[in-house]
Design a binder for these strands. Structure first.
Length: 570
RNA sequence: CGGGGCGUGGCGCAGUCUGGUUUAGCGCACUUGACUGGGGGUCAAGGGGUCAGCGGUUCAAAUCCGCUCGCCCCGACCA
């Protein structure tokens, strides 16, 4: 491609709306343009990268015997009612009606559609296992799209779905995908970490996220420096701490006046006590049952961990009415003392609080010197708070560390949830009908591109890994008025193209500085500079974007040298 | 959805507080010409704006008031 004939548009300055490095660079290098919040046009240069990532994904999926298909984006309401997810709040479904008032959703994911398909097509265990995938545009009506490609309303995703006859086979399918994902991200030049995660809206038993480490990432991952343990913040666990021996003497219970003091912060300011002394009491409704969760005032509850502990599907904070009903006191004054009607589950940290402060279940009253065992007894002690930096690893003695990252892939073992509700059943060897065991596996393609940039850029621009770079070689022609130089550039361009090398030739009548800066910005791994000065010596220059290493070679050797560098991966 | 900020040629901004001094300005980009030619060069001449939209106040509105829309950031939520 010659620059003067291409639709490459670079920007000297980033639009003000862009914050993240990848977002700024994608706009500046002319990979994408914004249409509206979270909606982007992929320009030719950006699309080339997307296609390369997709190709890697296809190759690795096909290696695991997954087969590609393509499903509709517009999906009728009925099928989502069957799976029970029509009213799901977590998926951010964009719903719409046609002229006949029929309701549809723009697919945020495709479990329903694939399961319906398989239920109609698969009859026998002999047809399993099966893994089907697609690469397609997904819609999520994000409340707040941000960071450009990292959280968009419309994005390209690869989603795969596996169907197996039994748990053993399903484990193999899951393992295959895990391997495929590692290969895909490695080939894209991304450093990822696999973490334990919460299946959330997808349901199912096991799930892991592939996180690309990046400071601008939205996800916080917790990992142990001494063992392989890693999890996302929501579901990370901690090891049991040694019970600290406190010298503090247990004091008698005392009711105190706390007019209109409802939050831990207000209580801290009012009493001058440390939050560590306070027992936060949160009332939840879990699948219809009411429970009280106790957390130390300086900790935050992880609803993911609580839900996991309670083994419930639907977990919501109780409203004021329910709180009054079960505690006898208004919102903001709940406490475990005297709570009889409901299950009490205490975070591990709470059990260490001696002479604690908590709500009295009466308006404008708290009680102090509350002690476990004497004043209240939780039905269960569990780990339900967010871990913090330095907490003990649940698997070893290490101290947990935290890092930020971007979730680029997520794999789930779904079990029978969808196959049951949507009737994806088969006949086993004994002629018995059984629902298939499913797994689903997603990769955010566009987000992966953003993550690659987050991990591969410097102050001047992008540094594409060779495997997904839009072009492999960027020829810079200095001085378009020198006939001889132009001739050399044209010849090399033709030769390289003939050899199958993807090359872009900057043939604009621009100053050297402009061309060099644009080359750094769009980040092609190898730069070939052809100038009158060097041509006079029968030489050309090759420079590697990644480390700035330069090679001065004879014109006749340029193609060979470039091919060698491409083989090395730029 | 809560809090904050912003909206002025393609991009980045000034002007708004204190209405009139501006025919709405600057840098970059763009067009034409000349010079120049190894890290965003110089000179000259140009094109491009319903000052987000609607309504109001006023002799007079980019500027004051009201409403609406859009965008960004923090939070909540989240494949």
């Amino acid at each position: 491609m010659k620059w003067t004939q291409s639709f490459i548009r670079t920007l000297r300055e980033a639009p003000r709306e862009a914050e993240a490095a990848s977002h700024k660079l994608m706009l500046r290098a002319g990979l994408v343009r914004r249409l509206s919040a979270g909606l982007y046009t992929y320009l030719p240069l950006g699309l080339r990268v997307i296609r390369k990532v997709e190709d890697i994904v296809r190759q690795e999926m096909n290696k695991k015997w997954a087969q590609e298909l393509l499903m509709p984006t517009l999906q009728p309401r009925e099928i989502w009612e069957q799976s029970g997810r029509w009213d799901d709040k977590e998926l951010g479904m964009l719903k719409l009606k046609n002229r006949e008032e029929r309701e549809f959703v723009l697919g945020p994911t495709h479990e329903e559609i694939i399961t319906d398909l398989v239920s109609k097509e698969v009859r026998s265990y002999k047809e399993l296992p099966l893994n089907l995938y697609q690469i397609q545009t997904k819609f999520r009506d994000e409340m707040r799209p941000r960071f450009g490609m990292i959280r968009a309303r419309e994005f390209i995703m690869k989603d795969a779905y596996s169907f197996d006859v039994d748990e053993g086979s399903a484990r193999k399918s899951y393992q295959d995908m895990s391997e495929a994902y590692s290969n895909i991200f490695r080939r894209c030049g991304l450093k990822t970490q696999v973490v334990e995660a919460d299946p959330g809206a997808m349901g199912g038993s096991k799930s892991e996220e592939f996180i690309a480490l990046a400071d601008t990432g939205e996800d916080i991952i917790v990992s142990c420096p001494q063992c392989p343990y890693a999890a996302n913040l929501e579901s990370a666990g901690r090891g049991e701490e040694e019970p600290g021996k406190s010298q503090e003497k247990i004091k008698p219970l005392e009711e105190i006046e706390t007019p209109n003091i409802k939050t831990i912060k207000e209580l801290k300011d009012f009493l001058g006590e440390r939050p560590e002394k306070m027992i936060k009491t949160l009332i939840y409704s879990a699948d219809g049952k009411t429970v009280a969760a106790l957390i130390s005032g300086n900790e935050e509850i992880s609803e993911v961990k609580l839900r996991k502990n309670l083994k419930c599907e639907n977990l919501q904070m109780a409203d004021e009415k329910l709180i009054e009903e079960v505690t006898g006191g208004p919102l903001g004054f709940s406490g475990p003392v005297g709570l009889k009607k409901i299950k009490i589950i205490a975070d591990g940290g709470v059990t260490k609080i001696i002479n604690g402060i908590t709500g009295a279940n009466k308006k404008d009253k708290h009680i102090k010197n509350v002690n476990i065992g004497r004043d209240y007894s939780p039905d269960e002690v569990a780990d339900i708070s967010y871990v913090r930096e330095g907490d003990k690893c649940p698997k070893c003695e290490g101290a947990l560390a935290m890092r930020r990252g971007i979730e680029v892939g997520h794999i789930f073992n779904l079990g029978r949830r969808y196959s049951q509700s949507l009737g994806a059943k088969f006949l086993d060897e004994k002629g018995q009908e059984r629902p298939a065991i499913m797994g689903c596996y997603g990769i955010g393609i566009t987000r992966t591109v953003a993550a690659i940039i987050e991990q591969n850029h410097d102050e001047n621009g992008i540094m594409w890994p060779m495997s997904i770079s839009p072009y492999q070689v960027h020829i810079i022609l200095l001085n378009v008025n020198s006939t001889e130089t132009v001739e050399v550039a044209d010849n090399l361009y033709k030769q390289l193209t003939r050899e199958g090398v993807e090359v872009i030739l900057d043939d604009r009548d621009e100053r050297a500085g402009v061309k060099f800066n644009d080359a750094d910005l769009i980040g092609i791994p190898l730069r070939l500079t052809i100038s009158p000065k060097r041509v006079a010596e029968k030489k050309v220059e090759i420079k590697r974007r990644r480390d700035g290493k330069e090679f001065l070679v004879d014109i006749e050797q340029a193609v060979e040298k470039l091919e060698e560098l491409i083989q090395e991966g730029g």
